[in-house]
Amino acid sequence: MSDKNKVFQYVQLKSVVSPDFWYKLAETKLNIEKLNENSKNIFGSFTNFNSQNCVVNLDCTAFNSHFKPRINSFHCHGTLLNRNTIESFKDSDKAELLKKEGEQLIDNIVNGLCLEDPTLLVPFILLSYADLKKYNFYYWFAFPASIDPVFYENSTPQKLVDVFPQQDIANFNDTYRNFEDQRLVSFFLCNEKLEIKLLKDLIRCDNLEGNLKEVDLNLTYFSFSDPSEYENPAWPLRNFVFMLLKLCPNLIGKQIKVISVRQDSKRTLTPSLIFTLDLQAVKINEKDEIKWTGWERNNQGKLLPKMSSMGESMDPEKLSDHFS
């Protein structure tokens, strides 16, 4: 097959930050955190409903204690590092931050937390500096992932609708969309009838050799909610496969099928794809050998932070011009 030996590639996530996020960040900084530079847990979300550009959205709800993403959206778990000065923003050791966050991810995988809440597979770092005199916010996102293993795609992706009968897809869509705890269908398994099986019910972190041992991989679909609209899946699949290889050594050397669940604007699953991954030559690195990647590139493809000017909607002086 002509596609043999094509490296399997993912589309990186792209951050989109709403003005109300910066408003809340400024409010928190002025009233609560002040000069505190400790890291803070925040939330973002991604959606596979009518999605564009593999976006992770952040708004003021990122700071809510009970974060509930909009319907058909999924948690992303962030670490906010808001620096007090532009120098400390600039001088932060980016590689070290990435490594630390990546190792946290491994811990969450190994101790089973990601099985209980699969959205933990989508962590991010937000390094920021808020210039509150000018209402300028400098920021840089990272979506950590291990560079290895690199593996190959065995064939071109198939369409879900070409593989499964309509009725199975309709039943699946119904269960999927109305799943009570959406987090559990961020990453999950399906059988040959597209019935949803939860990770926590099939994989254990205390008996790795037994994981998925009896399972027929031809009838098993590793599934995830994919914010990509491209032929490549989005970044979150990367950490899912990483986890599967870490927890299910039986998969190494085999081929697995992956359903990328995507909804169009009418909430049908027509855009969904099925990928076949060849896990033959994978190499599992030990924790300290892992090379991490994930700092977001700007629109020109450069590894540079971004800046948002919020004067128009936050600066009392500028706003008063529009009230007059």
Binding site: Q9, Q12, N136, I147, R238, T293, L303, L304, P305, M307
Partner: peptide, 29 residues
Amino acid sequence: EDDEGEAMDMEDFEESGMLDNVDPSVAII
């Protein structure tokens, strides 16, 4: 990015060493 020219030039943030890890699994869209 800033109308008033007060913002820092983002190119100033360029760091060496960050591109050392070549990642073949990134799809360039």
